[in-house]
Each structure stands twice: as C-alpha cells, then as structure tokens.
C-alpha cells in the first residue's frame, strides 16, 4: 500500500464516516433524551431518500398515507389521554390540525414544483413527522421500560418500517439528482461535492447539538428528563414534549442524511439498514452520550471499513466489527471512573 492509496482510503473513510455521522448523531440525541437505543434509526434514511425520489418523479410520496394514518392514531390516543386527564381536547386537536395543514401544504407544493429545494424540504418534513408518531406509539405508553424491552421494541419498529419501504416503493433503485454534480480535485484524488455537503451538514449538526445540550438551559433540561423522569416533571420540564421533539429532530437528521446520500448511491429500500447499523456502532463507540466522540467513532469506523475493504473485501465486515470490541473495552475502562453501576 503506497501513500497515494492510503490517502485515497483515508479520504474515502472520511466520506463514509460523514454518511454515518448524521445517523450516529441522531442516535445519541435520542439516547440522551429518552434512553431509547433506537436500532431502527436507519429506516428514516431510507424513507427520506425514497420520499424525495417520489417527489422528483412527480408522484405523491406514499409515505403521506403512513403519516396520515399514524397521525390519526396518535391523535386518537392523545385525545383519549386528554379526556382521562380531564384536560381540554381542543388543544391536541388544534396542534395536530396545524401540523397536518403544514405538511399537506408542503406536500402539495412539492408535488407540483420543480424546485429541488422545496422537494427536499417537503420530504424532510414528512419523514420527520414519522419520528414523533413512532415515539407516541411505541415509547410513550410505557416510558420506564427496561433496556431489553426498548431494544426489542426498536427491532419491532424496524420489522414494520423495513418491509413497508419495500411495499410502498418496490425494489427498484431510483435516481435522485445531486445538489451539485461536480467533484473537487484534491491532488491525485477527488471528492464529490455532494460528499462535502454531507460532511458539512454532519459537522454543523454535531456542533449545534453539542452546543445546545451543553450550554443552553433547555438542553440541560432535556437531558435531565432522561436521567430522572419524575424529578424533571416535578421541575416543570415537559418530559413528553421532550421525547417527541427529540424523535422529531433525530428523524429529521437521519432523513437529511438520506436526502444527501441518495444522489451518491441512489435511493433504494435497503440503503438505510446498513447505514443505521454502522452509525449505531460508531455512536456506541462514543458511549452513546457524547456528540463529538460519536462523530469520532463513526469516522474511525468509516476509516476502518475503508482500510479493511482494501485488505480483504470478503472479511471486511468481520474485521470492522471485531475491532469494535477492543475500542469499546478501552472506552468502558475510561468511563468506569465516573460511571456508577447501571
């Protein structure tokens, strides 16, 4: 392996990592605010990409139905909850109606427009709306569930969303135009502008989330909600809203990842699963609680993957996953000092 090849691989690894980074960051977001380990996060990537593809083809994205039905069920549950708590029914209905109106407007606009930006926005909005719906239906009913139960619920969500993508869009890959088709020459190699966009968005998102949770009061309140739910409620922190909001944001980030990734690898129903898994592994290397570390984790994973692919493409995944373990051990040891038993 000469220097040029090594550089190529390194650049390659960074690009990989950028792809996984947004998913990794959304996983950290969800974990730090709700303690849910969301294995199904990769599906939002798929849905985001395919929804955009639908708009570009000039069709109404079938995901509209899913959002509509899911939203209706959530509304029904919320209304029931409001009645049981003897609170106003008008509020949830109004909220859902407002959100529904916005989504409908965006969808119609995207359906008729040629503007890529508007289509991306609409796709992003629709798929992000799935996040709180999933939260409402699977986590909110029993927020105190144990890790095992939440992990398996995540598996269940994955079992619903993965075949749904196949059902709604079929197995054929669909093309999505890039924001920019060019490539940036860097010495002997080049990187697609689109990849740079992905990296830029990932870095921005990471910094924003990091700053938000570390320095703002609201961010700290949201973190508190996951550490001690009841205590946070007594302090007036809207715990339920926190959960829905974080799922919304996480879905948005993952969908954005899908939108940006699709031009590079086409939108097809299998694209999200592996990205989600590798994002999860990378984020976990950062302990699932730390944004900068999780980005470092996914980038490390991306680089590992790149080099392992070069060394032996058949054993690539075995090498990468096997190397995850010593990294986790090392992290675990360093985390021991300030971690109490869980």
């Amino acid at each position: 392996m000469d220097l040029q090849t090594a550089l190529f691989l390194l650049a390659d690894g960074l690009t990989n990592g950028a792809v996984y980074a947004l998913v990794g960051v959304s996983l950290v977001l969800i974990y730090t605010t709700t303690r849910v380990v969301n294995i199904a996060q990769g599906e939002y990537v798929t849905f985001g990409a395919l929804t955009l593809a639908s708009f570009i083809e000039g069709a109404i994205a079938p995901v509209v139905w899913v959002v509509g039905i899911g939203g209706a069920v959530s509304l029904a549950l919320d209304v029931r909850q409001a009645i049981l708590n003897r609170r106003s029914v008008v509020r949830p209905v109004a909220q859902y109606a407002a959100i529904g109106a916005v989504l409908a407007a965006l969808t119609l606009a995207a359906w008729h427009t040629r503007s890529l930006a508007l289509q991306m926005l609409a796709a992003l909005a629709l798929v992000s709306a799935l996040g709180p719906i999933v939260y409402r239906l699977t986590v909110e009913p029993k927020p105190g569930s144990s890790t095992v139960v939440l992990v398996i619920i995540g598996v269940g969500v994955s079992m619903i969303m993965h075949p749904m993508a196949l059902l709604l869009w079929g197995p054929d890959p669909r093309s999505v135009p890039a924001i920019s088709d060019g490539r940036l020459p860097l010495g002997p190699m080049d990187i697609a502008y689109q990849s740079l966009f992905v990296m830029a968005v990932s870095i921005l998102a990471t910094l924003a989330l990091f700053a938000f949770f570390r320095f703002t009061l609201l961010g700290k309140a949201l973190r508190a909600a996951s550490v001690n739910r009841e205590g946070a409620q007594y302090c007036g922190i809207p715990v339920v809203l926190a959960g829905r909001l974080s799922f919304f944001l996480a879905a948005a980030l993952s969908a954005a990842s899908g939108l940006l990734l699709a031009p590079l690898v086409t939108a097809h129903y299998e694209m999200g699963f592996v990205v989600g898994l590798k994002g999860f592994v990378g984020a976990a290397m950062g302990g699932l609680v730390n944004y900068p570390l999780s980005v470092a984790g996914v980038v490390t994973l991306g680089a590992l993957e790149s080099f392992a692919s070069f060394l032996s493409s058949s054993y690539r995944d075995a090498l990468v996953f096997a190397l995850v373990i010593p990294i986790m051990l090392w992290r675990n040891r360093h985390a021991q000092e300030d971690l109490d038993e869980h």
Binding site: N16, V274, S306, F310
Partner: peptide, 16 residues
C-alpha cells in the same frame, strides 16, 4: 473483490 448490496462506497475494492 466483493461488495455488499447495501454498500455506499466501493472505492477500496475499485482501487485494488
């Protein structure tokens, strides 16, 4: 060289 259906990146194999 081998790659997976869901891969997003083929550069290492192509390089080799």
């Amino acid at each position: 060289e081998r790659f997976s259906r869901g891969d997003t990146n083929f550069t290492p194999q192509a390089l080799r």
